[in-house]
Every structure is written in C-alpha cells, then in structure tokens.
Nucleic acid binder design. Sequence first.
DNA 1: CTCCCGATGTATCAGTTCGATACATCGGTG
DNA 2: CACCGATGTATCGAACTGATACATCGGGAG
Lengths: 213, 213
Amino acid sequence: MRSKSEILDLAILGLLQEAPMHGYELRKRLNLLLGSFRALSYGSLYPALKSLVERELIAGVDTASPPPHALSGKRARIVYEMTADGKEHLAEMLANAGPAAWEDEHFDVRFAFFAQTDAETRLRILEGRRTRLAERLDQVRTSAARTRERVDEYTLELQRHGLEQVEREVKWLDGLIDNERDTRRERTGSGRPADSDTQGDPGSPQRGIEERR
Amino acid sequence: MRSKSEILDLAILGLLQEAPMHGYELRKRLNLLLGSFRALSYGSLYPALKSLVERELIAGVDTASPPPHALSGKRARIVYEMTADGKEHLAEMLANAGPAAWEDEHFDVRFAFFAQTDAETRLRILEGRRTRLAERLDQVRTSAARTRERVDEYTLELQRHGLEQVEREVKWLDGLIDNERDTRRERTGSGRPADSDTQGDPGSPQRGIEERR
DNA sequence: CTCCCGATGTATCAGTTCGATACATCGGTG
DNA sequence: CACCGATGTATCGAACTGATACATCGGGAG
C-alpha cells in the first residue's frame, strides 16, 4: 500500500532536489536512474505528483499561463519544484533507514540518492541489504537441496544462475561496505589511509565521495 | 492485460503436467521455480485457476467430498489436474515462441519448461532473449554516455553494476546457445542412431551442477 | 512552403495484481 | 490439552500497469 508510493515520493523529491522538472522528463530520468529498465508508468507518476502537490511538498508551475505579456513561444508544460516542506520531508526520509529500505524495490532508489545520505545511514542500508540477500540465499539453497532430485536440468540451471546473480550482488555489496568503512576511518582520523584496492576491479566507487553541502 | 495471465497459465499448466497439485503447493513450487523470490499472491493464483477450470484446461477435484464411504481423515483440499484439452493447449504454448517469450517476465518461465520444449523453439527463445538484452545494453550505454557528467558517483556505480549484471546474463545465454547448437549438431551430424532419445534432456547446461556447501 | 511524422508532453481509465486478512484444520511440543 | 506454526482455501480494497486520447513541437521530404 504505502511501500510503492512512499518510495516513489522519495524518488521524485530526490530528483527535484537536483533541479526542477516536468513530468515527462521526470519519468525519463527516473527510468534510467534505476539501472536500466523498470518502466514507471504515467498512471503512477501523475497521481504521485498530484498527491505531493496537495501535501505541499512540491509546487507545480505552469510555464504557459503566467506570462500574459511575453508571448513565450514555449509549449505548455508544468514544471515542478520543491517547497521548503518538501526539502525537510526529503531529508527526513533520507535519514531514516527502516527495514523496508533494503527490500528489492526500495534499495535501488535509496542507493541512487546516497550522495545526499549521511555516511551512517549509508552503511546501515548497505549492511541491511547484505543481510537480506544472505538470508534469501540461505533460504533458496535449503529448499533447493530438498528438491534437488526432482527437477530437470534446465530448472536446475535456472536456479543455479539465479543463485549466482545474488552471490555476485553480495560481493558487490561487500566491496561497497568496505569502501564506506575506509572512508569513515579516514575521516575519523586514524593513520592508515588503507590505500590500494585489493583487486583491480572491485568496481566500487573510488574514494572521494565527500559530502558537499 | 493478457501478458501476465497468459504466462501464469503456462506456468500452472507446466507444473500440473508433472503432477496434480493443489493451490498452496502450486504456489510454493511456482515461487521457488522462478529463481528465488518473486512472490506470486493468491489474489492472482486463484482467479487464474478458476479461469483455467472454466475453460476446461484443468479440472479441480475436491479430495474431501468424493468418498462418502471411506472416512478419509484427510483435510479438505482441491487437487487440480490437467485435461486433454489442457495438455493440447500447453503443447501449443510451448511450441509457440512469440516475441513476448523473451521479455523479462516470460523468459524465466519459458526457460523453466525447456525440458518440455523442442530444440528448435529453445534456440529461438534463447537467441531472442539475447538480442533483447543486447538491445537494452546498447540503449542504456548510449543514454548513459549522454548523462555521464551530470550524475554523482553512486548513481554511476549503480548503473555500472546494472550494466554488468546484464552483460553477465548475455554471457550466460551465449553459453547456453552454444550448448544447444552442439547438441543439435551431434544429432543432425554423423550417423549415430544410438543417441536417439525421444525428447531432449540431453544437451542442457553441463557446467552448472557443482557442490553446494 | 507545407505536410507529415516521430518525439515531447499531460492526462485518464479499465483491467490486473498485490498485500492483508479471514477462516479453518493439522501436527507437534511442553 | 492448550498453544502455535505450518498448511490450506478464499476474498477485498488499494495500488499499479498498459493502453489510449489528445495536443504541440521540430525537422526532413517533396
């Protein structure tokens, strides 16, 4: 009920934080933000925008009507921008890392806005996510062991591949967590900068993700 | 509209092909079949079952009522089994590899029933899926190149990871495709009638099944 | 210059799916 | 024997999707 719309609110506010935008663009940015696909339909977006406007977390400005004097050749569109309340609300959401934050749908969005999230919360979310995945891994492996004999090879291969994907994701998370810890350690002062990466391709963001504000 | 319920029909029929089952079990099997998660709710399952019964593709037998003589201590449950029409319908669906077959939701299910699918169709689906993924990869890379400068490192990392996952999947598909081709060549190639198994379990992924802890 | 077409843009609706929940029985365990 | 978690069937309202309608913009073909 709330889960989806809540995370959608967060995503919208997060994007509007960077710059005011109109619906169409918002949708595009949202879709490419989330990895690759996962098309968000207008049927979700517009109601969400409406709700946000009603709650006065954002304000919609029609570009066409306001200037009666200047004949802005521009097409009519509604540009949304955050209000003060909206900024506050966003900050709250970003600071709060409830157990929902590491479920599938939520995690990607939360991660996408890590730059606006404090280090504490980042770490909490990453670790929560990791635990969640490990849990799932365990569960699947157990039930897979029970059905081992009764399934054909294709099904088996599908499960194996699924498992591998999740394992890969866990490793990815481990890299990110290490990175966060290193950054934190540097910040809190102790000597060793923990310099070189263990491998050439941990692929995680190199350091230097500082908060600027 | 149809897309989801159609694939759900296929999945149900495919499972019932193996053995008659009741709703609860069907759901469990379905959920662990599909990789790991992706919970299917009863709100979808029961209506689907009802529809299938109406179309007489399956038949539901209440285990409790039939035997008035034997006091079967068994709990009341409805076991579903395929009808002749259902088997026919399933065979049709399995033989048909429309362009929908390699979309995200469909592919997993189609793959899960590859053992019941002929080699021709298997190959078509695998290749269709591969093309689809490559397409997506291309698209994402292009749009990513355009936005490269404007996004923070976490967003970048998220996209990079997403891309990597898809690339990995493409490689996986390549392996499977090669495997199918080899199997096919063996079959059509030199005259070794000894190999003639009725329908294909043979090829299948050979790498996968290694030890689990 | 004009016409057409694909991209941009806002918006809604019917049909589906989901999450929660209700209800009931079964098999253990303390 | 009382509790409790797993098994089992079933439904409802809220939410989401895919399709569609409508309109304007920019640019290339003729």
